[in-house]
Design a protein around this nucleic acid. Structure first.
Length: 150
RNA sequence: CCGCUUUGCUGAACGGUCGCGCGAAAGGAUGCCGAAAGGUGCUUUCGUGAGGAAAGUCCGGGCUUCACAGGGCAAGGUAGCUGAUAACGUCAGCCGCGGGUAACCGCCGGGAAAGUGCAACAGAAAUAAACCGCCGCAAGGUAAGGAUGGAAAGGCGAGGUAAGAGCUCACCCACUCAUAUGGUAACAUAUGUUUGCUGUAAACCCUACCCGAAGCAACACCGUAUGGAGACAGUUUGCCCGACGCAUGUCUUCAGGUGGCACGGCGCAAGCCGGAGCCUGCCGGCGACGGCAGGCAAAGAUAGAUGACCGUUCACGACAGAACCCGGCUUAUAGGCAAAACGGUAAA
RNA sequence: GCCGGUGUGUCGGAAUGGCAGACGAGAUAGACUCAAAAUCUAUUAUCCGCAAGGGUGUGUGGGUUCAAGUCCCACCACCGGCA
């Protein structure tokens, strides 16, 4: 029954993205907010988590993520760069996160100049602030067990 | 060698680790939907994956839908000539004007002698002979002179006259028409001749030519399902003879659904990348370009794929990201390379 | 992606091609008042200058014109629409 952690390494997890505008609106309106210099994070308990869990192939809770980079930040090249940097930073942090949340990342103006290491550091700090980080690897495993029981 | 002008090309390279889109092949203790076929996912490997401007959306096409017998008007566009082209407001060559010692560069470059409008201020007067002045007894004549202005009824000299005036003459300038020569033509040169005319057409306009409209968020095809929920108010207002009903107002709630609107909406697939394509050679042409032959071809997403980190090298990396597809124009751009032409200096 | 619109003092908003900033709001100063409000008067784009005056100014850069906020071309910024 413990085949999943072996079968799916942390890096094989796909990012599930938010596409619908209403989910963004809900996150802005009622989500918990933490903002740094480069990025602001909105987090909301995902009430559709159960359904999403059923839908995805591995039958486990996931986070859905929306990444917003406005036109104010720069031209198309700059915006693409910012998006990629935050996507990789999120991917690196993903295994340590609690699941079943709706996350929206909003890039702020200084992000145009940011390096990827800075982005990673800030994102980790903000997730910690929102208490989204599963504290230790053991906890991470416990959560998985919990999921498997269900 | 230095300076300058023009044109063309290029737009860092290599390796490692992790990661993404698309395509192909293979795989399984294989998820979900399905009766099945299959669809959608997962894993591995291989291949492949932004620009010269992808940009601005300023022109021109293709393509799509709607409209359409034919013709005309209106509206809009273009504006030296000849050519190139699918087409163009683009490009090439030439003509004219202007600038530069030159190579070369710039020009919305038709018509003001068809008509209308406008020309502030200044000035006597602004397209026209009213005023001062000059001459004359007067009637009247006159456009020499009158501090302006962007522009003032060709210029200068002589004759002439009451005073004057292209009124006459010589020379010069501008311009119309005609003829001759050269050129396909724009036009150039020469001769003769008419006239002496303000500017403005990026004011109306005239002339010649071109033009149906909208755009992939256009649109085509296939199949399926549904009519947010609750509470209160209420026929006061609109539709209606009236009733039913619909629209309507207020509040709550939605992470049950939708998510811009909506008597219309949603899903899947297509449009979706082989095209007026690129490269090489030969031929024709001053050239834009055309013809023939051979070869090369894999971005194709749908919240939107090329990145991050490390190492090495160098010229130390600018502007910048495809979204139906082409041809141009315009704008942004660190540098690097090549060719041609001109000027200067030196040498021969 | 496509289509369309707008840029004028601090703000709103005028201006046949002819003295840029009418008009309104606001601000500042003065008068009135014990004080304030209201009212009245003046000033109010910017630079140089003691002053008289002069230069630059209609998003930016060119062009047409004697003359451009206005006409033409290119760019910049902002706003709106579409299924």
């Amino acid at each position: 029954m413990f085949c999943y952690p072996v079968f799916f390494g942390a890096n094989e997890m796909k990012i599930v993205s938010i596409k619908e505008n209403h989910l963004f609106q809900k996150a802005y309106a009622s989500g918990k907010r933490a903002s740094g210099r480069l990025v602001a994070v909105y987090a909301l308990q995902d009430r559709c988590a159960n359904r999403e869990r059923k839908r995805n192939p591995e039958k486990k809770f996931i986070n859905r993520v929306g990444l917003t980079v406005s036109k104010k930040i720069g031209g198309a090249v700059v915006r693409s760069r910012v998006r990629r940097i935050f996507r990789t930073a999120y991917r690196a942090l993903m295994p340590d996160l609690k699941t079943g949340y709706l996350l929206v990342l909003v890039a702020r103006a200084p992000a145009a100049e940011a390096k990827s290491t800075e982005a990673l550091r800030e994102l980790r700090y903000l997730f910690k602030k929102l208490e989204l980080l599963a504290a230790a690897p053991e906890a991470h495993n416990q959560q998985k067990e919990h999921q498997d029981q269900e």
